[in-house]
Design a protein around this nucleic acid. Sequence first.
DNA 1: CGGATTTGACCCGCGC
DNA 2: GCGCGGGTCAAATCCG
Length: 296
Amino acid sequence: MSFTECLQGGNMDHHYNSSSLANNSPFGVLSPSSSEVFSSVDQGNNQKPEVVGGETLLNSSISNSSSSEAGGGGGAEEEDSGKKKKNIGQVKEEPGQEATKNGNNKVEKKKGEKKQKEPRFAFMTKSEVDQLEDGYRWRKYGQKAVKNSPYPRSYYRCTTQKCTVKKRVERSYEDPTTVITTYEGQHNHPVPTSLRGNAASMFTPSHLLSTPTPFTSSGSNYNFPQELLLHMHHNQPTTTYATSNAASLYSSSHNNNINNSLFQQYQQQVQLPNHDQYGLLQDIVPSMFLNRTNHN
DNA sequence: CGGATTTGACCCGCGC
DNA sequence: GCGCGGGTCAAATCCG
């Protein structure tokens, strides 16, 4: 059962199963410590994704981030960056106060300005380390305790100057070995090549490279998260991905065909004008599972 | 010394 | 209106 089939066919329930994917996955061999897959995102209700042996039930709990993930370890996604309050960068107008955050000076946010959502890609992976090498350089800018979870959530930003991509990393409170990573935004620059060990170039899948960011034409202009692929190739063979805003679910099932399909699906997704109005779940799921026949 | 991390405070949206 | 939870800032600190 290929992902492609499922994309076209319809029932996703069991396709998701990554156990099979894991077995088939070419990346499987690469994964040192990972072996299971999970439904990536889920909503606040489900505190955690369901992992059933190999049968991931994500049909019922994927995502929904638009409202509030909040949840415990499971909530990989949160509402978008709607909380960007202080537009940093343009706030500090008073030189005298920047020293102390009185709160006044930084609350300049433009009222009329609407925060636009950035695409987010959430996925869960089994890993011992929080920081997975995905080819990009990240700077940690915050850490918060996660409710219902003993593990904190870390916030990272891409260190590349103009790049605004962020990612959150947290561990599932029930599965300490499970790391939930949520990427937000897209890199507007190539993968740094000067990484230690050159992980980027080492792991960048050729088929991926041959698919030069297909989503740059649409207004949304989202790139497929290469880091995800890098990541999954690099660290885990089986990972289920979900995106909140653009909503798509990625699974490192097997080959480029699949990836292609994913690309297509994803592309369609991001081009959908009102996908926002659907629940996150629907947001994500439909793209992959609801028979979207109009795909190229 | 420069860059990255730590960490407490602050801000904001949301629910009650 | 208040409290809570999430996200971000930025000074202090750490590290190469």
